[in-house]
């Protein structure tokens, strides 16, 4: 390799019914797109817990893609609206933490829209490439104490939730 191009690592949460199938369709129609998105299948975009996104960032993802059925076309009637609400709040929160908006994107792709999904992925990869690495994982490694503190909070929470039978 002569030149080092930054290849962002993106985790994509795709819903089982529309966007995962759109990605399948992009495959069977051989619509080439950037190889940076690593797809995690969920049943519905409404399943995407904000902690999934945080987890991905903390483990070194440079960006996160959430894709679901178009509004009004959700396999589960209206759950993608819930995904949409969470997404906007999460993006707002992340923005406050200094994470650029392009690093978390929500895309609607119906099962017939392989082309559109491929285009959205290409666009996103380009945008994130411009931004450069997020580098959270590195920071987390350096701040071992902070991790410890966070893990303590989780433990405390778990203990508080425990109900003695």
């Amino acid at each position: 390799m002569s030149e080092q191009v930054f290849e962002p690592k993106i985790v994509g949460f795709l819903c089982n019914w529309c966007s995962y199938r759109a990605a399948d369709l992009a495959g069977s129609a051989r619509i080439t797109h950037a190889p940076n998105v690593r797809i995690v299948r969920v049943m519905c975009s409404g399943r995407v817990d904000p902690s999934f996104v945080m987890k991905a960032f903390s483990l070194g993802a440079d960006a996160v893609l959430i894709a679901g059925c178009h509004p009004g076309e959700c396999h589960y009637i209206e759950q993608n609206y819930k995904a949409m609400r969470r997404f906007h709040m999460l993006r707002q929160t992340l923005k406050a933490m200094g994470v650029e908006e392009q690093r978390i994107q929500l895309v609607w792709a119906s099962a017939a829209e392989g082309q559109q999904l491929a285009e959205a992925i290409d666009k996103m990869v380009d945008e994130v490439r411009q931004l450069g690495p997020l580098g959270w994982s590195g920071n987390w490694e350096e701040n071992g104490e902070r991790i410890q503190a966070l893990e303590d909070i989780v433990k405390e929470h778990e203990q508080a939730m425990e109900v003695t039978a």
Binding site: M1, Q4, F6, E7, K9, V11, R38, V40, V42, M43, R47, D49, S51, F52, K55, A56, L59, G60, A61, S137, G138, E141
Partner: peptide
Amino acid sequence: TGAHFNNKQIFAEIEGALWDALQPAA
């Protein structure tokens, strides 16, 4: 808990998908 798509499973999947993220790209 969402059977077959529970938090543990998805967290683990994310972790696996980013197995190489901590290392220099080269």
